[in-house]
Nucleic acid binder design. Structure first.
Lengths: 141, 141
DNA sequence: GAATGGTGCGAATATCTATGCGGCGCTTGA
DNA sequence: TCAAGCGCCGCATAGATATTCGCACCATTC
C-alpha cells in the first residue's frame, strides 16, 4: 500500500496550487498524480491535515508563523528588569530591530518599546506582563 | 422581516462561544436566541460570513487585521514621488512611526523605509510598487 | 393601481461529506 | 505457527450542506 503521508503531502500541494471545491475533484486530481484512492479516505485525510473548507473551497491552514524574534538571538546580549519595565542590551545598532521583532511577537500586555542604538526599553502594562517579556527573552539567551 | 445582519452577528457570536458541528445545531441555538430560520439560510449566511468548517467544527475567521496605518492618519501631512521612491512628510517626530506602520502594511514591492524626524523615504523595487505605495498613502490623506 | 426589480426566504432536492463496518496485510509475542 | 492487535482501506449509506425554484414583501416608476 502507498504511504499515506505521501498522499497527504500531495493533497496539501494540490490545495495550495488550485481552488478545489469538492473531494470528488480532489480525488480526480490525485488520480492524475498517481494516487488512486476513494472519497472516504480523502474525508479522513482532510481531517488529519486540518484542512478547512471556506467559502466553498478547501484551504490548507497557514503555516505556523515563525516568530522573527527567534532569528535575532545573536543580537541580544542581556536583559534586566526596571520597575515593571524591562531593559534589553543588544549588539550596537541592533536595538530597533530587536524592538520591532518583540512587538510583532504578540506578547500579551506589551504596551510599546523605545529603542536607542543598543538598548531597548520594553513597556508593559503590568508586572505579570513584564514577566512574560522576560521569560520570552530569556528563552533566546 | 428580521434584519439579516443581526442574525449574522448572532451567528458569529454563537460560533465564537461554542463548538458547533452542524447547521442543524446552529439552527437550534439561533432559535433559542429568537432567530427562527431555516438551514438553507444558514448555509448562505456562513458563506457570507466567510466561516470555515475545520476538523468538524465551524470557525469564524480571524478578525481582519486593522492595519496600524489607518490609525496614523493624523500624523501624515503629504506625499511626493521622487524617481520611483516616495517621500512622506509627517508631523514632527512621527516619521519612524509612520515608516514602521507602512512596512507592516505588507505592500507588495516595498523594499524598505528610511525615517528621519518628520520625513520618510519609501524605497520600492519598481515604479508599479511606488504607485501602490502612493495609492495607499493617499487613501489616508 | 399595475408593472418592474431587488432582496430575502424556505421546501424540496441535488450534491457533497462522514462514518459503520468488514476486509486485508503487517507486526508482535506466546 | 497462529492469534491478537493495529493501521489503513473502500463499499454502502447515513448525515450534512448547497442550490434550485417559486413565493412574499417592499420600493420605485409609469
Amino acid at each position: 500500500m502507498a504511504d499515506p503521508d505521501l498522499r497527504r503531502e500531495a493533497i496539501r500541494e494540490l490545495l495550495r496550487e488550485e481552488e478545489i471545491a469538492s473531494q470528488e475533484v480532489l480525488l480526480e486530481r490525485l488520480g492524475r498524480k498517481g494516487f488512486h484512492t476513494s472519497q472516504p479516505v480523502l474525508s479522513r485525510d482532510l481531517r488529519v491535515l486540518n484542512v478547512a473548507k471556506q467559502a466553498g473551497f478547501y484551504r490548507v491552514s497557514e503555516e505556523e508563523r515563525v516568530t522573527p524574534l527567534a532569528a535575532l538571538k545573536s543580537l541580544l546580549r542581556s536583559e534586566q528588569p526596571v520597575s515593571h519595565f524591562v531593559l534589553l542590551y543588544c549588539e550596537p545598532g541592533a536595538a530597533s530591530a530587536v524592538a520591532r521583532a518583540l512587538e510583532s511577537d504578540g506578547i500579551d500586555g506589551l504596551v510599546g518599546t523605545i529603542a536607542g542604538d543598543d538598548t531597548v526599553l520594553v513597556a508593559s502594562d503590568s508586572h505579570a506582563a513584564s514577566m512574560r517579556v522576560r521569560r520570552r527573552v530569556r528563552e533566546l539567551l
